[in-house]
Amino acid sequence: MLKRRIIPCLDIRDGRTVKGVNFVNLKDAGDPVELAKIYAGHGADELVFLDITATIENRKVLAGLVERIAAEINIPFTVGGGIHGIEDVSLMLQAGADKITINSSAVRRPELISEIAGEFGSQCVVVAIDTKDHENDWIVFIDGGRTPTRHRALDWAKKVASLGAGEILLTSMNNDGTKEGFALDITGDVSRHVNIPVIASGGAGKMEHFRDVFFNTGCSAALAASIFHYGEIDIRELKQYLKKEKIAVRPAPFPLKGV
């Protein structure tokens, strides 16, 4: 049976992780590779690295980081931030990324999706959609959530799927940072109406939230950042909990001790 995936997301600035991390055994909390290895060891199913600075100078730094991650990590990973064209994609894939994610650049130039899919295959194109509920209308935002667009989330999701996206990373801005759970309505809607995998994002605060989003929507994966980084939820524990709740997940590789 195909398993629902748990995906930690790491924000990167100048090749270092941004958010504070409190793992006891971490030698260097700012090193994305160290952190990625811990997550992979805990049973993360994939990883997402988002470069939040994403300037041209930083792209080389990011490519260097991607090479180190690819050398050390034995699960798939996605890289995003500042990807505007085929050359950026090529650079990241050559460095060893399995997938890239695009957001604003896809809204500005939707053909970019089909160009990347045509050149490298749909499987490596994750289109990120940031959306905010405004009077029961889910509007797509770009530029890190600063700029509203004319797109509605569901229509845009269908459009990106038809252009050759391999996966959708759907973030509800209303829920992001609240720790009150994922947006079940829009996640359910998009998952029902597109035929490609949907990753739910924004709002995870408790293990129950993961159960709820998997139980109530057809999403393929759930992504979270701070609750993993701050150690509020241990991925091994989360996997055990979801299994008990009859959600199909890949078990954590090592048995949990003392939990």
Binding site: K3, Q123, G218
Partner: peptide
């Protein structure tokens, strides 16, 4: 159903040396 088939899945009817020490519950 969702296509591509993307993610972790298991397998069964395992035959041959490639699957030495591998079980059908592994993903």
């Amino acid at each position: 159903d969702t296509v591509p088939h993307m993610g972790w899945n298991n397998f069964f009817s395992l035959k041959g040396v490639l699957f030495e020490s591998i079980s059908a519950t592994d993903d």
